[in-house]
Design a protein around this nucleic acid. Structure first.
Lengths: 283, 283
DNA sequence: GTTCCGCATGAATCGATAG
DNA sequence: ACTATCGATTCATGCGGAA
């Protein structure tokens, strides 16, 4: 298993075809968007995007485990005054390959790039397309539950009498603070809209993929020690998220510069991680 | 011009074909979704949705002025564990009719339908597809600028990491009631994500289409006295918004019950409007 | 009059049961 | 097998009644 916890230089299509079938639990990636980031990736033309992407999607399908998930972060650009259709056509084409289009999450960006145009507003969201090989896939919803809002005012009053009694007997002393603490940790399930900020000065990579994004999907779709693949690893954000969460990673990129950057970032992190772990357990 | 400021009973395809060409400045509508509203509209099957909708889209195209805009509120349902593809296929089919797919706004709902399922979270967003006949269309961006102030900035800065994941209900493009807190503040342009609540029940109808939604697009794409069409008027929300904003309306619905309800609601509003106007100017 | 709390209610989705 | 109906799940919102 020499590909585990590696950042590999090469085209993901070729690299992945040298890996065994069904060896990856989750694929999370933000591929080069059409006609953007020309300086680094050369830029794929919108009209050629589907032909460029489909063979790679086929390679993803082969390495993904049957109960695994593929999360694709993408947004179509504006061409000639219109939203280009390559993304929605890609969904249709991938379904022909056998992928199931399970869900479309929305990444609602908190801070989008400023700007003004005569006939459109700032683009403040991106697609997070979820594809699966089967209707039954691994999902750990409890891992991404979020604290409920308005706990101090609203939820305290909504506690049932039995909840109060149970809580008091557990902690043994005084109820006020302990109850509010318990309420504070009350959690609810999230929705399919993720409201996250973009990372501003994100390393030397031009894409702004906040680490919270892969982290969220890694927690949701994998268990510790599972294998997370990012075939367009870029600055390594997905691998960082996987490492932080105790998962194994596989990263691939065509640019040697990014591969080196990744390795550096990951080795820095591995030194820091024990410290972080100590801190956490100390709290 | 007998169709102006009327709610017309009938199938919009037939009704519209009796109107002159290029007579409408804006179309805003929320058609019956596939398999929904069976009790009132009969429910269109997902596989038949495109065939059902396309001739109507053709009729819309004919009556829309060259510089007008068509806003379509829609969301595909889950069929057999997958998001059905009829909506994205509809986009492609409408482009073949000559429509330009200018933009896709997101309606990020504040309150989505509750529920829990083993492999999916609650659906918290809908599509607002913008179509045009030409690359040059009427747009009044200043009309929908939103005030921003220290209050909003404070809220953003105070968010914890976990808070970032969940929906922050006070953050967003600033539509709806919170706008009253921001008077006299500096104004900025909104983005293509609209953050609004659905209207709760307790009314005689099932208006899940909040009046803020058509209001926003009416302000953005029309001037006073322009003509706003909703070919699936339902409970009349679009007509109410148009009337409140000093625009003219045309509403169509196949259900006599809804047509009657609309007329009642609109006549009530016309009585109240002077009072509302006084109140507004008083603030 | 305010503020606060209880309650009903949704463009939902899955899985089981029934025809 | 394939479709139709039903119960269970779950949470933001606004209304009405109460303090």
């Amino acid at each position: 298993m020499s590909f585990i916890n590696q950042i590999i230089l090469g085209d993901c299509e070729n690299v992945l075809n040298s890996l065994p079938e069904n060896c990856v639990d989750l694929i999370v990636t933000s591929p080069p968007y059409a006609d953007q980031r020309k300086n680094t990736y050369g830029g794929i033309k919108p009209d050629e995007y589907i032909d460029w992407f489909l063979p790679k999607a086929q390679a993803f399908y082969r390495v993904l485990k049957p109960k695994g998930t593929f999360i694709l972060n993408i947004k179509e650009r504006v061409v000639n005054g219109e939203r280009h259709t390559y993304v929605i056509e890609l969904i249709l084409a991938m379904r022909s390959q056998g992928w199931l289009w399970t869900e479309e999450f929305i990444w609602h960006k908190k801070n989008s790039f400023p700007g003004k145009w005569p006939n459109r507003f700032r683009d403040n969201w991106e697609r997070l397309l979820q594809f699966n090989k089967q209707k039954k896939f691994k999902m750990y919803q409890e891992a991404v539950m979020v604290p409920v809002g308005d706990w101090a005012k609203d939820r305290l009053a909504k506690l049932s009498a039995t909840d109060r009694v149970r809580d008091e007997s557990k902690v043994g002393s005084g109820f006020g603070k302990n109850i509010s603490h318990w309420v504070n940790r009350k959690k609810v399930y999230p929705t399919n809209v993720l409201h996250m900020a973009t990372e501003c000065a994100n390393q030397n990579h031009s894409a702004v993929f906040p680490v919270d994004l892969p982290s969220w999907f890694i927690k949701l779709f994998t268990e510790p020690n599972d294998v997370v693949l990012d075939p367009f690893i870029g600055s390594g954000t997905t691998a960082v998220a996987a490492l932080q969460l105790g998962r194994r990673y596989v990263g691939i990129d065509t640019e040697a510069e990014y591969v080196d950057l990744c390795k550096e970032r990951l080795s820095d992190l591995q030194i820091q991680l024990p410290i972080v772990a100590e801190k956490k357990s100390g709290i």
